[in-house]
Design a protein around this nucleic acid. Structure first.
Length: 415
RNA sequence: CGGGCCGUAGUAUACCGGUAGUACGCACGGUUCGGGACCGUGUAGACCGGGUUCGAUUCCCGGCGGCCCGACCA
């Protein structure tokens, strides 16, 4: 579906935001018809929303492939015993446990170390097969006591999780840096600035992990960051306070901010190989356990964070690379945009064609709400030309079709 | 899980211990036609259970659900 007639689009916009919802992502995504809430923390992604989700997913996929990740798709439904092997069945409170009509119990995946470790290490016989990084893009389940803030914290959410396997700590450290760079590139591509933040490694690890924090009041983490260097630390583990001197560069001052954790990377050490007693034959001929890393990015959360960061009073302002369509073609009474629609389709431009029989004001208001980057208007006034306007600009201009195609194409490359 | 606020057409809201009103939406007709146009007609509603009462959507209790704060978030 690279193009769509708006009169046929499933789910129309709403003039009113849902009552109670305070966060921009919850209000705007629902009003504009990108998502529908089934219950707190579980959403349907409607045609427009799914297109955005898929776009983000594809950017993440490209960057994971670029650093050698191999995509797989693992089950969401897990047997109990693998979670008992690692202690998670007892220790991880957010783990959803599902009773069967048989005596058995199952878990819903909240992370996939328990699946991926046996999956990979059953097949890795010796050191020559390492390093190896596999990832998936799939749903995760967490039994949150309080799902909140629209799609920012769900009980079910869409996530990319990658796991890397290494012969030793040094090789892991090397890849860890490669992965961090890839992460920064992903956030940059979707138009966000993420701060690499030192944080707790979780209940199974003494080591610190790194969280990729995007500053937004809708987030739920407090961080301290230096105004002179890259230093950034989660308030949970910070030894410093607001306004203290930076412990790293000693020049800057620490500032406090609220942020949303859009991604994280963990040093898992040898825990999982040891728990499952799955190793490989090392260079010295003895059995060794792999050093593992885990790398997550919440794709659905990222979509919410983008809305939090990029909207105005009128609606969402999607970055070009994740927008549901590149162009929003609006036809006003007395003119037909059908011909231009066909030309846009022929050029392979993803376009939403507002062919509805409704007022200009309503079409403009909906275009602002939905937030597609380029707005094209065809009316009796444009007389064979097209009015073109970017979502983030106030005034458009009337140009020839040729010029219009050039403008749209130029936008396509700068992401 | 503790605390607060709240559950009324599809959405957002109003009033009320005794006929549930409005706006938008939706359907039909007419007039409009570059920033959510207008007129008319129509459509559609009290979360669930119990209690008080002649009578409960309204008051009380319990449940369920939603939002927010906190705790939690390998």
């Amino acid at each position: 579906m690279p193009h769509m007639r708006q009169s046929l689009l499933f789910v129309k916009t709403e003039r009113n935001a849902p009552k109670d919802e305070l966060t921009a992502n919850a209000r705007l995504l629902a009003r504009a018809g990108f998502v529908d809430k089934l219950m707190a923390g579980a959403y349907t992604y409607l045609p427009l929303g799914l297109r955005v989700l898929r776009n983000i997913e594809q950017i993440v996929r490209e960057e994971m492939d670029a650093i050698g990740g191999q995509e797989v798709l693992m089950p969401m439904l897990h047997p109990k015993d693998i979670w008992e092997t690692t202690g998670g069945w007892k220790n991880i409170e957010v783990l959803f446990k599902v009773p069967s009509r048989t005596e058995k119990e199952y878990a819903l995946g909240q992370s996939e170390e328990e699946v991926v470790t046996p999956l990979v290490m059953k097949r890795v016989m010796n050191v020559s097969q390492l390093p190896l990084a596999v990832y998936q893009i799939h749903w995760k389940f967490r039994d949150e006591l309080r799902a909140k803030s629209g799609i920012l914290r769900g009980r079910e959410f869409f996530m990319k999780d990658m796991y890397s396997f290494h012969e030793n700590q040094e090789d892991f450290e090397r890849f860890y840096e490669v992965a961090k760079k890839a992460y920064l590139k992903i956030f940059e591509r979707v138009g966000l600035t993420a701060k690499v933040t030192e944080a707790s490694g979780g209940s199974f690890s003494e080591k610190i992990s790194y969280e990729f924090m995007v500053l937004t009041d809708a987030g739920e983490d407090d961080i301290l960051y230096c105004d002179a260097c890259e230093f950034c630390v989660n308030k949970d583990i910070a030894k410093q306070n607001e306004n203290d001197a930076c412990p790293k560069c000693r020049k800057g001052k620490l500032h406090r901010a609220t942020a949303s954790e859009a991604g994280n990377v963990f040093d898992l050490g040898q825990k999982y190989g040891k728990d499952f007693d799955l190793g490989f034959i090392g260079k010295d001929g003895t059995k060794q356990y792999p050093v593992m890393g885990c790398y997550g990015i919440g794709i659905s959360r990222l979509m919410g964070v983008i809305v939090e960061k990029m909207h105005d009073e009128q609606g969402i302002i999607w970055p070009e690379c994740v927008a549901p369509f590149r162009a929003h073609l609006i036809e006003l009474k007395g003119a037909s945009a059908k011909e231009l629609y066909d030309e846009l389709k022929a050029e392979g431009i993803e376009v939403l064609y507002d062919d509805r029989d409704t007022s200009a004001g309503e079409k403009f208001a909906d275009a602002d709400l939905i937030g597609i980057p380029w707005r094209l208007v065809v009316s009796p006034k444009t007389e064979g030309k097209v009015e073109i306007k970017r979502r983030d600009e106030k005034e458009g201009k009337v140009v020839s079709k040729e010029e219009m195609f050039k403008l749209i194409a130029s936008g396509a490359h700068h992401s």
